[in-house]
């Protein structure tokens, strides 16, 4: 095994081009477990900790450019207003020690369906900025996940940042685990209201081979909200609409039975989380509307 220590992003890209099998390590919270337990013996380990830029974020007009290595702790402490869904998801990641090291780049690189960041990124809308010596590109989050622990990266590419749309409405994230802390998701659900475009987006974790959106549920809800004039009138979403949304979210799962839970439970739990997160975000949306109207 060789240990590569690129001092800059350019050096990292060059090293990755030269050694496409090199495994990038930042927080180490996935890679080191595999090494400690003898599940993986990469030829090259490439430390990204020296590249300071990867741990920085910028809040822009439309979106936040989040460096791949920005630790979850920093996200939950500093980006709650801009990225509320991701901040909530970050708070559910493992333990404080892990949140101090791990970042979204690792979640994306590993592309495990159980990664906590994915549902929030899918719901918020995001693009993954990847680069190789051949050039940079942005991969829409919907096209990023390709299979169980497979993503859209080419062998010579590295994840530099993720561009997440700034929240234009309430967002929520829920995760079921069989413990109250330090737990891998049995399944997870992210939901974002986008009042600007009058759309709702979702993200489901650990209930299909890849993180997925519940597109049929989104379409149904978008139509129902539009039809009932809910975005304008801010009425309470009728229980039958919420229920159908939840059922459609369940239906968009394609889960398996494993030691963490049954497929049947996952489908059920995603439905419950969908209904609850919709209620919470919609209540919050109505609250903001009332406040705004009251002030006007």
């Amino acid at each position: 095994m060789d240990f590569l220590r690129p001092a800059s992003w350019e050096e990292a890209l060059a090293a990755k081009a030269e050694h496409p099998t090199a495994v990038p390590i930042a927080g180490g919270t996935d890679v080191m477990v595999e090494i400690n337990f003898d599940h993986r013996r990469p030829e090259y380990l490439m430390d990204l900790n020296r590249i300071g830029d990867l741990s920085e974020w910028e809040v822009g007009e439309e979106s936040v450019r989040l460096g791949a290595s920005v630790p979850y702790t920093a996200i939950m402490e500093n980006l709650r207003a801009e990225l509320p869904g991701l901040a909530l998801a970050s708070h559910t990641v493992a333990s404080p020690q892990i949140r101090n090291r791990g970042g979204v780049g690792g979640n994306l690189g590993t592309a495990s369906p159980a990664g906590d960041a994915h549902p929030a990124l899918l719901a918020a809308g995001a693009e993954v900025e990847v680069e190789s010596v051949r050039g940079a590109r942005r991969i829409p989050i919907d096209e990023f996940y390709k299979g169980v622990k497979r993503n859209a990266l080419a062998p010579d590419e590295l994840i530099r940042a993720v561009h997440v749309k700034k929240a234009d409405g309430p967002q929520q994230f829920s995760k079921v685990g069989t413990r109250n802390a330090m737990v891998i998701a049995v399944c997870a659900f992210g939901l974002a209201l986008h009042p600007a475009t009058r759309t709702v987006r979702t993200g489901i974790g650990s209930a299909a081979p890849t993180p997925v959106r519940a597109k049929a549920a989104e379409e149904f809800l978008n139509a129902a909200l539009e039809e009932g004039g809910f975005w304008e009138n801010g009425k309470i979403i009728t229980p039958s609409v919420a229920k159908q949304f939840a059922d459609l979210c369940s239906a968009s799962c394609n889960p398996i039975d494993d030691v963490r839970g049954t497929a049947s439970y996952r489908r059920h739990a995603v439905g419950v989380m969908a209904r609850r997160t919709l209620t919470w975000t919609w209540e919050s949306y109505r609250g903001t509307r009332r406040t705004t109207e009251g002030a006007a």
Binding site: M32, D47, Q97, R101
Partner: peptide, 13 residues
């Protein structure tokens, strides 16, 4: 200064 799990930090890091 930051609490971390030392088992998940590669020595070279």
């Amino acid at each position: 200064g930051v609490p971390v799990c030392s088992c998940l930090v590669a020595a070279g890091q």
